[in-house]
Simulated assay, not measured.
Amino acid sequence: MSMDGLELTSANGLTYPCGEPPEVGTVKEVADGVYWVRMPLPFALKWINLWLLRDVDGWVIVDTGVATEESRLHWRTIFDSVLDGLPVKRVMITHMHPDHVGLAGWITRKFGAALWISRLEYLTCRTLVADTGREAPEDGVRFYRAAGWDEDALDTYRIRFGGFGKAVSRLPDSFERMADGDDIEIGGRSWQVVTGCGHSPEHVCLYQPDLKVLISGDQVLPRISSNVSVFPTEPNGDPMTDWINSCHKLKQVIANDVLVLPAHNEPFYGLHKRLDDLIDNHETALARLATWLATPRRVIDCFSPLFKRPIGGDVLGMATGEAIAHLNCLIARGQAVVERGPDGTLLYRQVG
């Protein structure tokens, strides 16, 4: 089965129409004037999708990859072979994580291009970059100790703290703000800004209804669920409620027949099905966790009802943040309370 010359494959109720991803250093057109770029990542998640949009007098890049020399090399190849001698006019960033914003500063300086990003993503990124080289704050140590971490895990946190900026080239000192509901003209078409939060503070998606295309960043991924975490800077935050509400919002404002261009995995059809699945998966996890709290539990005791694999090593911080996000959501719903034990560890228990 094919559509517009592209092979269709189906899995998990979604349809993947774009075939094999482009080789690094090349692009693949997935809609009129919309090109798929793929870059390697030095993480457990091995690849990120980036997007190149044809503008009237140049190009727009959406997300950039992490700041490694390998990614710079692949971008140089694309600049030389794809841009037809036209400049990059704008660099648009969905959100502030290093695999998305990492080379934004390098590209904007190279072309004299403007950085387009939401305000909270820009300011949060600048704050995290400013932590580079700092000692781990005592607030962070207390936060993870209260979650049940042992001294070895806390030592690892101290050693690794402040590494964010190493994966991000220096950001411009000014930016063009993208805000929810904005219309931005690119290539003679109007792209609508739709924001969400939970995975990051003010994540931007770009929606073009005539092309029926949604650049979703990490807000909607087809095969994995984005991390939704609480961090030591806002220990009582409730990003899980924000995330679930954002999924409902996207379903309301974006048509189901769009081609979704995610940051990870393949482009797909089936937006509303995927949003329903993301909401249902978290609601099911919240229900399991509420039952689990019939006995008071530490944060690290809550991994088993939430995750399918043993937790430790490099994923301990991410799992801890996501567990606290679920716990804080239950507290906000009046289904759990938290108390501090005699050793300072937080204990969560079911209400009712």
Rank of each mutant, 00 (worst) to 15 (best):
I107Q: 03
D152F: 00
S71M: 06
H97Q: 15
T195I: 01
D257S: 15
A114G: 08
K46D: 09
Q252H: 13
L115P: 03
A179N: 09
Y16D: 12
S169F: 02
R90Y: 11
K251R: 15
R160K: 15
H95K: 00
A67L: 08
L289C: 09
Q208E: 15
M240I: 03
D343E: 04
L8T: 14
I279V: 12
G140F: 00
A114Y: 11
F79W: 14
K110E: 15
P267M: 06
T26Q: 02
T291P: 02
E266D: 13
V66L: 05
I48T: 15
H95T: 00
E176Q: 12
C329H: 12
H95L: 01
V66A: 06
L41H: 09
M92Y: 11
I117F: 08
G198E: 06
A113M: 07
V82I: 12
S81T: 14
M96R: 00
D183L: 08
R333K: 11
L120D: 15
R72S: 11
E29G: 07
S71T: 13
K89G: 10
V338K: 04
A167S: 13
D238E: 08
K46R: 15
W51L: 03
E322I: 01
C197H: 06
W59Q: 11
P342F: 04
G58F: 12
P201C: 12
C18P: 10
S190N: 15
W243C: 08
I331H: 12
I324E: 00
V88T: 02
Y157G: 01
R170T: 15
T64A: 06
I78P: 12
W47V: 13
D301Y: 00
T132C: 11
T124I: 04
G112R: 09
A319N: 03
A287M: 04
W59C: 04
R189T: 14
R134K: 12
M240C: 07
E135K: 15
R297D: 08
L103Q: 07
A31K: 00
W51T: 08
L306N: 03
A146V: 01
T127F: 11
M1R: 14
V168K: 01
L41Y: 06
G33A: 13
L103I: 07
L306K: 07
P40M: 04
A285L: 08
V230L: 08
G165Q: 10
D131S: 14
S304L: 07
L286C: 13
G237I: 03
P232Q: 06
K251L: 05
I311N: 02
T291A: 05
P98Q: 06
L53A: 05
V60M: 13
V27Q: 13
L261I: 04
A285W: 01
T77K: 15
S304M: 09
L41E: 14
K212W: 04
L6T: 12
W243E: 05
T295R: 10
E185D: 12
L86T: 11
I117H: 09
P137I: 00
E138F: 00
I254S: 05
D63W: 03
V88S: 03
L327M: 03
S229G: 13
N12T: 04
V337Y: 03
K166P: 06
T132L: 10
G217I: 05
V56W: 01
C329F: 05
L115T: 04
R274D: 12
P22V: 05
G133Y: 06
T132V: 08
L306Q: 02
Y348C: 02
G270R: 10
E202C: 03
M318A: 07
T26Y: 09
R309E: 07
